[in-house]
Design a binder for these strands. Structure first.
Length: 668
DNA sequence: GCGACACCGCATTGAG
DNA sequence: CTCAATGCGA
DNA sequence: GTCGC
C-alpha cells in the first residue's frame, strides 16, 4: 500500500516533495499507535520522547520551494487562466446578489479561483489537437478523487482553445441583483442584502445616498458605520506601494511606543507576505508582558489633529478591560463616540490619555500593568522585527502577469500520462470520515500534535538565533509554559468563571469556547480610514488619498495564531484551519486548542479545550506537524494538495488497521 | 435535492 | 428592557 | 462548484 501511495503521489502530484510521503507514513503509524495508547492510560506520557514516532517536520501544503518553483514555471496557459478568473469575478457578481447567503457565493467564486490557479500553474498548454487527453491528464492531476472536470469546466477550456476567449456576458447581465450589488459595492458595510434593498428603494449609486440626511439613511437600513464610510469609496483605495504603507505604520509605531513602551508593532496582511503593493494596512500589536489593551488609546492619539492620521472610524473595539494598580480589572475609559447622528463622527479624546502616558514612567494611575521590558526583551523584539522578509517576491503579480513559461522539468516529469482506468481515490470528505473515529482519541493529538515538553520549534524559527543557550525562543517557551501561574498573564477573567477542564465542564460545555482559560484575552480590533501624508513630489491634482487601516491587539499568548491569521493569504488560512479541524484541533486568530467532541451532542456543536499558549508562529506550524513557512511563502493555490496527503493517510490508516499490527516499517 | 464548505465580533433589527 | 437572528467585514 | 447524505 505504501507503494501504491507513493506511486499515486508521484503520478498525479509531481510537485509534492518526498517529505510528503514520509509524513503520510508517519501519520498513519502514529494513528495506529495512538489507538493503542488510548487504551493504556498514561502510556504516551511514560514513553520516552526519543522513541516516539514523531515525523520530522514535513509539509502537507506545498513547501516553499515547491510554491516558488511552481510559480516560476508558470504554465503555458496564462490567457486561459486569466479568462477563467475573470469569469469567476463576473459569476461572483451574480451570485453575490442572487444567493440568499453570503457564504455560498464565496465558495462559488472560490471554485473559479481554484480552477483558474490550477490552470495557471499547469505547465503545458492545452492544444486543440489533443485536448481530450490534455483535459483528462489535467483532471487526474488536480482532482484525483473525481477524475474528471465538470462539464462546465470542460466547456470553458474548450471554448477558449477554439475561440481564444470565454464569453461571460451572460453572467454579467444575468441578474438585476448583481447590478444592485455592483452599484453599492464601493461602500463599506453595504453587502448583498442592503444593496438589493437600496436598489428596490430607487437608489442607483452610492453618491445618491450621500445627499441624504442621517435619519433617512438609518431608516433605509444603512448602518452608522456605512454612513460614515459613504464618503470613501472602496475603489478609491488604489493599491499603495510598500513605502507608503511603511510610512503610515511608522506613525502608528511611533505613537504606540510612546503610549506603551516595548510594544511590538507588526505590519500584517499582504505587506507582510511581501507583495509590492497593498490595498490596506493591518497593524498588529503585541506586548511581551501579556495583555496589550491599548487600541482605544492609540486610536485616540492617531485621531488628534496634531497627528491627523485617522480621519474616520468604522469600527471600534468593544469595552476594554484592564488591570489597575491594585490588580483589579476595570473598564478602560476609552473613546467615547459623541456623534451618532452626524456623518462626521466625533470622538472624544480620552480623559485618561494623560494617565496612560504617565503610566509608563510611574506605573501609578491608569493601566499600570505596563512594565518596561528589559534590555534583553527589547533586543529580542527588535531582532524579531528584523525577521520580516526584506526582499518581497511578488508572487501574485508573477502568477497573474502571465510570466513566460520556463519549465525547470521536462513535460514528462511534470505531466505523466494517465492510464484511462486509473483507480478512484478517496475524496477529502471521505478522508475526513475515515479519520473521524481516530481523531476522537486524544492519543493522536498526543503523539502527532503535542510536542513532548519543550514546545519550541527551534529549527523552524524564523531566523537563526545568535546565542543558543539563552536564545529568545527558548526563553519564550519557558515563559509560556509557566504562564499559567505567572502573574504577568491574567489568571482568568473574574467576571467569567468556568472550568478549564473538559471533564469537569458540564455547564459551560454548551457555551462554546471557554475563554476564561489561562492566557486567553479578548483581542481588540479597530477598523478605520487613514489620510495619507502627501507624498513629497506628488501631483496635487489627485487630492488627498486614503487608506483602509486596521489596528488590532492581542494578548502575548495569542501572538502566534494572530500573526498567522492576519498574514494570510486567505486561502492559506482556510487550508490551515480546515487541516487543523480534520486533526481534531481548532484554529483561529485567537486560539489553537483541542476540539473536544462529546458523543451525544448534535454534530457541529462542539466545545474547545484549553487554548495553547502560542507566542510564535512556528508553534502553530509545529503543532500541526507542518514545515514552517516564511510569510512570503504562504501563497496557497491548491487546497487539494493538502487533501491528497490526507487521503493517503486515511488509506494507510485503514489498511494498517485491517492488516493488524504490521506497520512497523512506516516510520523511520 | 439539500446542507456544508473557516471563523468571529459588532451593529442593527425585531420579537418577546 | 433583553435576547436571538441577520448582515457584514475580516 | 462540488461532495456527502
Amino acid at each position: 500500500m505504501v507503494t501504491r501511495a507513493a506511486s499515486l503521489i508521484d503520478s498525479f502530484h509531481p510537485w509534492l516533495s518526498p517529505a510528503d510521503a514520509d509524513l503520510v507514513a508517519a501519520r498513519a503509524h502514529a494513528a495506529e499507535i495512538g489507538s493503542e495508547a488510548s487504551g493504556a492510560s498514561g502510556a504516551a506520557e511514560a514513553q520516552p520522547a526519543a522513541k516516539r514516532p514523531r515525523p520530522a517536520a514535513a509539509s502537507v501544503l506545498p513547501t516553499p520551494a515547491q510554491t516558488r518553483s511552481l510559480v516560476a514555471r508558470l504554465s503555458g496557459n496564462p490567457g486561459l487562466a486569466g479568462e477563467v478568473l475573470r469569469a469567476g469575478e463576473a459569476y461572483q457578481g451574480v451570485k453575490v446578489a442572487t444567493s440568499a447567503r453570503v457564504g455560498t457565493h464565496v465558495f462559488k467564486s472560490d471554485a473559479f479561483d481554484s480552477f483558474g490557479f490550477r490552470l495557471a500553474l499547469w505547465p503545458r498548454p492545452f492544444r486543440g489537437d489533443s485536448l481530450a487527453d490534455e483535459l483528462r491528464t489535467f483532471a487526474w492531476a488536480t482532482r484525483p478523487w473525481h477524475g474528471a472536470l465538470t462539464a462546465r469546466q470542460r466547456e470553458r477550456v474548450t471554448e477558449f482553445v477554439t475561440t481564444g476567449r470565454i464569453a461571460r456576458g451572460d453572467l454579467a447581465q444575468a441578474s438585476q441583483d448583481a447590478t444592485a450589488r455592483l452599484a453599492f459595492r464601493d461602500v463599506h458595510g453595504i453587502g448583498p442584502s442592503r444593496a438589493v434593498e437600496l436598489w428596490t428603494a430607487g437608489f442607483r449609486s452610492a453618491s445618491s445616498l450621500l445627499a441624504l440626511p442621517p435619519a433617512s439613511l438609518r431608516s433605509l437600513g444603512v448602518a452608522a458605520d456605512s454612513a460614515r464610510a459613504l464618503r470613501f469609496a472602496k475603489s478609491a483605495f488604489s493599491r499603495h506601494p510598500r513605502a507608503l504603507i511603511e510610512r503610515v505604520a511608522a506613525t502608528v509605531r511611533e505613537q504606540a511606543a510612546l503610549l506603551f513602551p516595548g510594544i511590538e508593532v507588526v505590519i500584517g496582511g499582504s505587506f507582510r507576505r511581501g507583495q509590492s503593493t497593498a490595498g490596506d494596512v493591518d497593524i498588529l500589536l503585541f506586548h511581551r508582558d501579556g495583555p496589550c489593551a491599548l487600541v482605544p488609546a492609540l486610536v485616540a492619539r492617531l485621531s488628534r489633529p496634531e497627528c491627523g492620521l485617522l480621519t474616520e472610524h468604522l469600527k471600534l473595539p468593544g469595552p476594554v478591560l484592564c488591570m489597575d494598580a491594585h490588580g483589579e480589572e476595570r473598564e478602560f475609559p476609552g473613546l467615547r463616540y459623541a456623534g451618532p447622528d452626524s456623518l462626521r463622527s466625533e470622538w472624544e479624546a480620552i480623559p485618561d490619555a494623560e494617565s496612560a502616558e504617565t503610566s509608563a514612567g510611574e506605573g501609578r494611575a491608569g493601566p499600570s500593568l505596563v512594565r518596561l521590558p528589559s534590555d534583553e526583551q527589547q533586543r529580542d523584539a527588535e531582532a524579531e522585527l528584523a525577521n520580516v522578509p526584506s526582499r518581497p517576491p511578488d508572487l501574485l503579480a508573477m502568477a497573474t502577469g502571465g510570466t513566460a513559461a520556463s519549465p525547470l522539468l521536462s513535460e514528462g516529469e511534470l505531466c505523466p500520462a494517465v492510464p484511462p482506468d486509473s483507480p478512484r481515490v478517496a475524496s477529502p470528505r471521505e478522508t475526513a470520515r475515515v479519520l473521524d473515529p481516530l481523531k476522537r482519541q486524544a492519543a493522536i493529538a498526543a503523539l502527532l500534535l503535542a510536542p513532548s515538553s519543550g514546545n519550541v520549534c527551534a529549527a523552524a524559527a524564523a531566523a537563526p538565533r545568535t546565542s543558543s543557550s539563552s536564545s529568545p525562543s527558548t526563553r519564550i517557551s519557558k515563559q509560556a509554559s509557566l504562564s499559567r501561574s505567572s502573574s504577568t498573564f491574567p489568571a482568568r477573567h473574574p467576571h467569567r468563571q468556568g472550568s478549564s477542564c473538559a471533564n469537569v465542564a458540564s455547564t459551560d460545555a454548551l457555551n462554546g469556547p471557554d475563554r476564561s482559560t489561562p492566557g486567553f484575552h479578548e483581542p481588540q480590533l479597530y477598523c478605520g480610514i487613514a489620510r495619507l501624508p502627501a507624498a513629497a513630489g506628488a501631483p496635487p491634482s489627485e487630492g488627498p488619498s486614503y487608506l483602509r487601516i486596521d489596528i488590532k491587539s492581542w494578548h502575548w499568548s495569542q501572538r502566534g495564531t494572530a500573526l498567522v491569521a492576519f498574514t494570510g493569504n486567505n486561502r492559506f488560512n482556510r487550508a490551515l484551519r480546515r487541516y487543523a479541524d480534520v486533526l481534531g484541533l481548532h484554529l483561529s486568530d485567537r486560539a489553537m486548542c483541542n476540539r473536544v467532541l462529546q458523543g451525544e451532542r448534535p454534530a457541529g456543536d462542539r466545545w474547545n479545550d484549553e487554548p495553547r499558549v502560542v507566542t510564535e508562529e512556528a508553534h502553530v506550524f509545529k503543532e500541526l506537524g507542518l514545515e514552517f513557512r516564511q510569510p512570503h511563502e504562504r501563497l496557497v493555490f491548491f487546497v487539494d494538495q493538502m487533501h491528497s496527503a490526507l487521503e493517503e493517510a486515511a488509506g494507510l490508516a485503514k489498511d494498517s488497521r485491517q492488516g493488524g499490527s504490521a506497520s512497523s516499517n512506516s516510520a523511520t
